[in-house]
């Protein structure tokens, strides 16, 4: 809220953000673990990468690790590398957890080994309904250099918070949508027109993990309404049709803290009203060298899913046109093969 105030003061006083040169000689590589394990098959994964010094601008993934999730109740789930550091279950259909069981992630890389704290899978909390409201937000879409104002749908969730326990929530999404582009307007590297013949209509399937979390500190046992969990800008996403699975995760207090502080740092623009940035402690430890800093979190949660299907024609607002003068298959995750049942 105060960030917004300051943004106004900033514009008033023409404040600005500029790069500075920071010399740090002892920059290091650190293992980063991103993992999610739930009671639902098909959405469980582990991703391994490395934190890099600022002088190295590329991603670096760990592709040769052995990854296994075990439980105190005797379950064992093996994961294998797919691509870009993602590890998926070897037996995807039968890899899921049970509420009340306690799971541990074990990662071995060459002679190094990492282990999470044991985490008990929480009982999921059902979603009441998912609904939408038109609003505007200022942010940079992927690929944009500047922040712009976007009209779009706020995704709002209603649910009944259970009264007897303290509950913590986060949300994740899997979506599928149609994009329309203008390959005939393509300009080559020299800036000359070089129209392409294909393709103007594609479908994109992607996952979206956010840092939006909620707890029931102020709403214990209440019917929670209009909890905003995502914003979908109309352009790009809502040209024709948009299908989305909304997952509501019941997470642990530690996971809540981790996601909350991550979200806080993602948003931080260093204003007077931002808490100073700090070290974020995850739940992964190195068992081979205990003093090694390991980043990231292994999240174990009880999840429920609700599917929504939005058609552009139903939106009471002109959605505008997505300008992208290129073959739509060039967009990340895009295909020109129409999905079954579209």
């Amino acid at each position: 809220m105060f960030r917004k105030f300051l943004s106004i003061v900033l514009i008033l006083l023409m404040g600005c953000i500029d790069p500075i040169d920071f010399k740090n000689n002892d920059q290091q590589e650190h293992m980063v673990v991103e993992g999610s394990f739930t009671n639902m098959a098909g959405i469980n994964y582990v991703r391994l990468s490395y934190a890099q010094p600022y002088t190295y601008p590329y991603n670096k993934f760990e592709e040769r690790a052995s990854v296994i999730i075990t439980s105190e109740e005797g379950e064992q789930f093996y994961f294998s590398h797919d691509q870009a550091g993602y590890y998926y279950p070897v037996d995807a259909e039968n890899t899921y957890g049970r509420p009340g069981h306690t799971y541990t992630l074990q990662v071995n890389v060459a002679d190094k080994s990492y282990r999470s704290e044991p985490i008990t899978l929480r009982e999921p909390v059902p979603i009441g309904q998912v609904h939408f409201a038109i609003n505007e937000k200022t942010f940079a879409l992927q690929g944009d250099k500047e922040k712009r104002k976007h009209m779009g749908y706020q995704v709002l969730v209603d649910f009944q918070d259970p009264a007897q326990v303290r509950n913590y929530y986060r949300w994740s999404f899997a979506r599928q949508y149609e994009v329309l582009t203008q390959p005939w307007d393509y300009l080559n590297d020299m800036g000359d027109p070089a129209p392409k013949n294909c393709c103007a209509r594609c479908w994109i399937q992607e996952k979206e993990e956010t840092f939006t979390v909620s707890d029931d500190r102020l709403t214990n046992g209440k019917q929670v309404i209009n909890r905003e969990v995502l914003f979908i800008p109309f352009e790009k996403y809502l040209q024709t049709r948009y299908k989305m699975k909304v997952y509501q995760h019941a997470i642990t207090p530690d996971a809540f803290e981790f996601y909350r502080i991550m979200g806080q740092q993602k948003e931080s623009t260093g204003t007077v009203f931002d808490p100073p940035p700090s070290e974020i402690k995850g739940n992964m430890r190195s068992t081979s060298t205990p003093e090694e800093q390991v980043l990231g979190f292994f999240d174990v949660s009880g999840v429920v899913m609700q599917e929504v299907d939005i058609r552009a024609n139903d939106i009471p607002y002109p959605v505008g046109i997505f300008i992208h003068p290129d073959d739509c298959r060039e967009l990340p995750g895009a295909t020109d093969v129409q999905p079954v049942g579209w």
Binding site: I17, D18, Y54, D144, K145
Partner: peptide
């Protein structure tokens, strides 16, 4: 920031 490598930035409240 999109389009730039990750790096250190400063915020100036009064820059003019």
């Amino acid at each position: 920031y999109y389009g730039r490598p990750p790096g250190a930035y400063k915020l100036a409240i009064i820059g003019v």
